[in-house]
Each structure stands twice: as C-alpha cells, then as structure tokens.
C-alpha cells in the first residue's frame, strides 16, 4: 500500500458521511426475500382459494376470496382445536417441569458447597451430547414399561428430561454470577438457602427463565419424532402430528391442507412477532452453549 498516506484525506471523510440509500444492496435483499418468502406466500394464499383455484392458478392471489377452507378446519370436526389444545398442554407442562427442576438443581449446583457437586454438574451437562434420536427406541420401551405409551404425560416427561441439560447449564451459569455479597447479606439476616433462592435469585432470573422458556417452547411445539412414537390416538395428537395426519387424509384437498397449515402457523407467528427480541437472544444463547 504505497499510497496509504495519501488515501485518508480523500477516503476518510467519505466513510464518515451519511451513506445514500443503498440501491443495490436493497434490491438484492428484496429479491432474496421474495424467493425465500415465496413458499410461505403460496401456502397463505392457497387457504383462501377453492381447491379448483389452487390448481388452476396455484401462485396467484385468491379470486374469488373464500373462507370456506378455514370454516371447515375450525368448525365442524374441531380437530384442529384438539391438536392445538394438546400442543399447548404438552408445551406448558414441559416448560413448567423443566423450569422447576432446573431452577432447583441450579441453586444447589451453584450456591451450595457439597461433595460431588462438580461431578453432578458434569453428569447433567454431558446430556448435551445425546440428541433425542439416539435414545428414541429404548425411550419407547421405557415409556411402555411405565405404562405411559399413548399418554401426553409420557411426551411431557421425556421432553422435559431432554431439555434439562441445556436449561441446567444456562441457569447454573447465571446463578453463579450472582454476587456472593448478596448471599452473605441473607446469611447475616439469618436467612437460609431457600430464602436466598426465593427472595434473591428468583427475582433476578427473569432473563434466564425467558431464555429457557423460549428454547423449550420451540422444541416442544415443533417436536415430531417423540410424539410420533409415543402417541397413537388422534385425540392426543399435537399440531405437527395432526398436520401430518390431515395431509395424509386429504391429499387432493390442497386448499384445506394449506388452510390447516396456515392456522397452525398463526400461534407461532404471533409468538414470534411479540417475542422476537427474546427469541433471537434465547436461540443464540442456546446455540453458543459450546
């Protein structure tokens, strides 16, 4: 760079001035966005069409615009509401169980000195290496032996168990950072570990509780393999199982399938729109667990 001394004069001020609207960058982004959004768009439109129109004009706007497909999904059979209820129930219970178990364990693993603490901690965190798929067959047998096959409780227990390593990792890490002075202050006031946990740690834990909730919710809401092997009765199906079954029943009624898919996306989309900031933070925290 022979002219490195000459450049700053012409280059630096330019870099500092406000950039004009980046036409090229915007156009490339817009084109990519259009391509990436296209499948979702097609599905959204399809739900508002008649089945004939889905095939006559698969990618156009709905003309005429009809709500028949949605009426049939959400009305009559009410199947969707079953699936929605099951997914919500399973996700909520999984989250509560995961949080309760890992907050309790997290306190002990970060704030109480006892023999074997780090062994226990490593025991849990080692679980990060085992994806659900590796244990799925014995898990099926285990649930069978407990009489939990076909029951939502079986799904809840297994999902919570597999959520524990990450949530214990996140929560213990967070509790460790709470200043020891606070614990000493509680001790001086005559409080014990439970006072410290409930009065000091819990109120401070909103960020990690949010993170664990979001990660667990997404995992549970989208989980397919586990409910697929555990649940057999359509009455206890979650949304992913329900969508899959529905799709199998109505292979020709694509407007119905698309409406069904759209309805199943709505809760996720709402959730995403309102909690976007936390979701991204939660997933990045989950991902960088390394």
């Amino acid at each position: 760079m022979a002219d490195s001394t000459a450049r700053p004069i012409s280059g630096a001020p330019q870099a500092r001035t406000r950039r004009r609207f980046p036409v090229v960058r915007f156009s490339v982004t817009a084109v990519l966005a259009a391509i990436i959004f296209f499948p979702v768009y097609t599905n959204l439109m399809g739900g508002f069409k008649t089945n004939g129109q889905v095939f006559a004009d698969p990618f156009g706007l709905p003309r005429p615009f009809t709500l028949d497909a949605f009426a049939s999904i959400l009305g009559r059979s009410g199947e969707f509401w079953h699936f929605f209820y099951n997914s919500t129930l399973i996700a909520a219970a999984t989250i509560l169980l995961t949080l309760a178990a890992s907050l309790a364990a997290g306190i002990a693993l970060s704030r109480i000195s006892f023999r074997g603490r780090s062994t226990l901690y490593n025991f849990f965190v080692m679980g990060l290496m085992f994806p659900l798929t590796v244990a799925i067959l014995p898990l099926y047998l285990q649930l069978r032996d407990f009489g939990l096959l076909g029951s939502r409780l079986g799904v809840i227990l297994a999902e919570a168990a597999f959520s524990l390593p990450l949530s214990i990792f996140i929560i213990t890490g967070f509790f460790r950072e709470i200043p020891w002075e606070l614990q000493d202050a509680v001790a001086i006031d005559g409080g014990g570990i439970m006072t410290f946990a409930v009065r000091v740690c819990l109120p401070l834990s909103t960020p990690v509780i949010t993170t664990v909730t979001i990660v667990t919710l997404i995992m549970s809401w989208n989980q397919f393999l586990l409910p697929l092997i555990v649940l057999s009765d359509a009455d206890s199906f979650t949304i992913p199982l329900g969508v899959m079954q529905f799709q199998g029943q109505f292979t020709t009624g694509w407007n119905l399938i698309m409406a069904f898919v759209t309805v199943s996306i709505v809760p996720v989309a709402l959730f995403y729109i309102f909690l976007q900031r936390y979701i991204v933070a939660g997933l990045t925290a989950g991902a960088t667990k390394g």
Binding site: L97, A100, A101, S102, A104, A105, A108, L109, L120, F124, G127, F130, A135, I136, L137, P138, L139, Q142, L157, A158, A160, A161, F162, L164, P165, I168
Partner: peptide, 15 residues
C-alpha cells in the same frame, strides 16, 4: 437436585 436427577436418569441416561 433430586427431581432433575430422577427425570434425567430415567428418560435420558438409562435409555
């Protein structure tokens, strides 16, 4: 730690 331990052992470690 017990609840987490039992859950984790039964449905992750043993399988």
């Amino acid at each position: 730690i017990a609840p987490a331990f039992v859950l984790f052992t039964l449905f992750v470690v043993i399988p």
